[in-house]
Computed example of a mutant assay.
Amino acid sequence: MPQVQNDNRFEHLLDHHHLKKTGPRLRVLSMMSSKNTATSQPDLENLMHDVDRVTLYRILNVFEEKGIIHKVFDLNGTANYAICHSNCEEHNHQDEHLHFNCTVCNNVYCLNDLNLPSINLPAGFKAENFTLYASGLCPKCSKKENKK
């Protein structure tokens, strides 16, 4: 099991969203923040053997509702979760960035630093959220591919 730190920023984040600071919640945040890719519930289940599936589902659900994490789907349709930027609010996600799906390792990356084009919707349309996907090879898989 990976090393997990109980970080004060996670306690502050839970306080900010009026959530109890439970061990499983703090561990989920720590595990998710330690990765540079989005994480699926099955991946978290494999790391957190002492937390049952229903509890983990509820943690992910409340974190998404509160704007702590956002959901992104991989190429297989599996929901993955990543920590939101600090400007997300309850029921109002601001994580409008490119999500990159690697076609080899199946990891999902949030590419937050890219400038996205503005989208002008036709009259009468109102976007409530926005998701942009790209797929291909991540740097690690691309490097392996080039060595062949």
Rank of each mutant, 00 (worst) to 15 (best):
M1V: 11
Q3W: 11
Q3C: 12
V4F: 11
D7N: 13
N8L: 15
R9F: 10
F10K: 02
F10N: 09
H12W: 11
L13S: 02
D15N: 15
H17A: 07
H17D: 11
H17I: 04
H18A: 12
L19N: 08
K21H: 14
T22Q: 06
R27P: 00
R27T: 13
V28P: 02
V28H: 03
V28E: 01
V28C: 03
L29P: 07
N36M: 08
T39L: 05
S40D: 13
Q41Y: 01
P42A: 11
P42S: 09
D43H: 04
E45S: 12
M48I: 09
H49P: 01
D50G: 10
V54H: 04
V54P: 00
L56Q: 01
Y57A: 01
R58S: 06
I59E: 00
I59R: 00
I59L: 03
L60E: 08
N61T: 09
V62I: 15
E64V: 03
G67W: 10
I68M: 05
I68S: 00
I68T: 01
D74P: 04
G77W: 11
T78W: 06
A79H: 03
N80S: 10
Y81G: 03
A82W: 04
I83F: 03
N87I: 01
E89S: 10
E89P: 01
E89M: 06
E90P: 05
N92M: 03
H93R: 02
D95I: 01
E96F: 14
H97G: 04
T103Y: 12
T103G: 06
V104Y: 07
V104F: 06
N106T: 07
N107P: 00
N107A: 09
N107W: 05
V108M: 13
Y109W: 09
Y109V: 01
N112D: 14
N112E: 12
D113T: 04
N115Y: 07
L116Y: 04
L116H: 04
P117E: 15
S118E: 12
N120I: 12
N120H: 13
F125T: 02
F125H: 13
F125G: 00
E128W: 05
F130E: 02
L132Y: 12
Y133Q: 12
Y133F: 15
A134G: 14
A134N: 08
S135R: 06
S135F: 10
G136D: 07
G136I: 03
P139T: 04
K140M: 02
S142R: 15
K143I: 05
E145W: 08
E145G: 01
N146P: 00
K148Y: 09
